[in-house]
């Protein structure tokens, strides 16, 4: 075998060993992988093992006269079509917002919970805020707020509020390109 063939075999072998390790010692390796795996060579392959929480996103507006509106659902449901077995562009946006909601809910449950200042600098918060701020608004709307509610996985318990944002302003979001 040539030297190049040896190199290829060794790289594949090392890569596979690390991939195996990452699946079964995920917690221990995760910080290390986050820091050094720039090219995403080590994927976590245990998809949907942890059953996702049943989260719902809603928002409400405060008008310039101080009146506060009702909570409105921002539906993340995908558009359904027969084609989606092979082609499903509608998943991306919903999945992206859903992925942002998870860390916010977990952060709200930590002790002590995240402060508004801390949240403002966090990507998931900015992402979900942006999704909410991009929804159409009436001219008299001054600020907007979102909340995340959770449906119990079992039983008939109703929606429980698990995260409430502060009031969001369009002029702050405009600095990051939101019109």
């Amino acid at each position: 075998m040539s030297a190049l063939e040896w190199i290829v075999i060794v790289v594949f072998a090392v890569w596979f060993v690390f991939t195996v390790g990452y699946q079964f010692w995920f917690e221990a390796m995760y910080p290390w992988v986050c820091r050094f795996d720039w090219f995403h060579l080590l994927p976590a392959l245990n998809y949907f093992s942890v059953v996702p929480r049943l989260l719902r996103l809603s928002y409400r507006d405060r008008l310039r006269d101080g009146a506060v509106g009702e909570w409105r659902r921002l539906s993340l449901a995908q558009q359904w079509s027969w084609w989606r077995v092979a082609w499903n562009p509608h998943l991306h946006e919903s999945q992206l917002v859903e992925k942002g909601m998870g860390p916010l809910v977990e952060g709200a449950e930590t002790q002590p919970p995240w402060t508004p200042e801390y949240l403002a600098g966090r990507y998931p918060h900015r992402l979900v805020s942006r999704a909410v701020l991009l929804q159409p608004r009436a001219e008299e709307v001054e600020v907007r707020q979102f909340q995340i509610t959770e449906l119990a996985q079992r039983g008939d318990a109703g929606l429980k509020v698990v995260f409430v944002s502060g009031w969001l302003r369009w002029d702050e979001a405009a600095r990051e390109g939101v019109k």
Partner: peptide
Amino acid sequence: ELLWNRHLFRDEGLLGWPL
């Protein structure tokens, strides 16, 4: 699919570069 969702990558989109 990503080209179909190119609005997400514009500056004001959810995956816009400023964010």
